[in-house]
Nucleic acid binder design. Sequence first.
DNA 1: GCTGAAAGTATAAATTC
DNA 2: GAATTTATACTTTCAGC
Lengths: 160, 160
Amino acid sequence: MDSIVNKVLDEIDLQILDILQKEGQVSNTEIASRVKLSPPATHARVKRLDNEGYISQRVSILNQEKLGFDLLSFIFISTNLHQAEQLEVLESALESMEEVLEFHLLTGEHDYLLKVMNKDRKELERFIRKLNKLGITRIQTSLSLREIKYSTVLPIWGQE
Amino acid sequence: MDSIVNKVLDEIDLQILDILQKEGQVSNTEIASRVKLSPPATHARVKRLDNEGYISQRVSILNQEKLGFDLLSFIFISTNLHQAEQLEVLESALESMEEVLEFHLLTGEHDYLLKVMNKDRKELERFIRKLNKLGITRIQTSLSLREIKYSTVLPIWGQE
DNA sequence: GCTGAAAGTATAAATTC
DNA sequence: GAATTTATACTTTCAGC
């Protein structure tokens, strides 16, 4: 046995979640046949998993290249802000920017990592200028030359 | 006007893609009413966008916390491998690991960034040991203390 | 791209195990 | 209590226009 998970989710629930996280489009009927349950029973489980918050959202992943997004950057930023309010302002400002795809507080003193998607260098430059106005003291930008893997799939069966 | 995009995709196509990337579950009927087209016309567009590869995949995003994934890390690795074959072996080894959610080649000499999801420190330690066996000379690990934002949505309307 | 009809799904209710 | 079967509403999808 593994963790808390198995106390509320059985094997079939995990199977369903794993199907959904890999193929969001698959029909309830199809899931039912794969987990060897009737469609209504399966549907009830999916609904339960949804209501209980195991499924955060269903989305379509668009093709970055075909839509002209050629410039993915990872930007480390540091700040010398210390008051909680100031940090909150900074965080909500960055969070609301659509080009910011991910935003993490990292270990260390007020070090953040941003994953930023832009169409081109000009847009990235504009973005970095916006950062400068927010009380950020240090900015270190790394460009992604090639995205080797991009997955939203959690390794729910563990790894060996 | 913006880019190459608008030569093959009109405003309605972009609207459809934007709806889909934010709400993968929404029905064709609903999309149709939002873009003010009939369901069949809308369906034909969605199918076209799918066939032409604008939609890479449809997925469900699961709740990390509820499934016990408490440890998200960003790992920078460097290698002194230079032969293309060796690098390919390294890349495909890392790509196939389920705990590796993202994998990017960055600017610089053979510097990669990994986004790695683990349940706990023990699993992360096991993962790092696996890295050591692959000819990686330098490993720098940053832990995410808090995920402030996580989005798969491309800013297709541009940013201001 | 639209309208209207046919096929296929999802979902609710009633029943059984 | 949970899954199944039966029945209904909805959606997708295929004609013809």
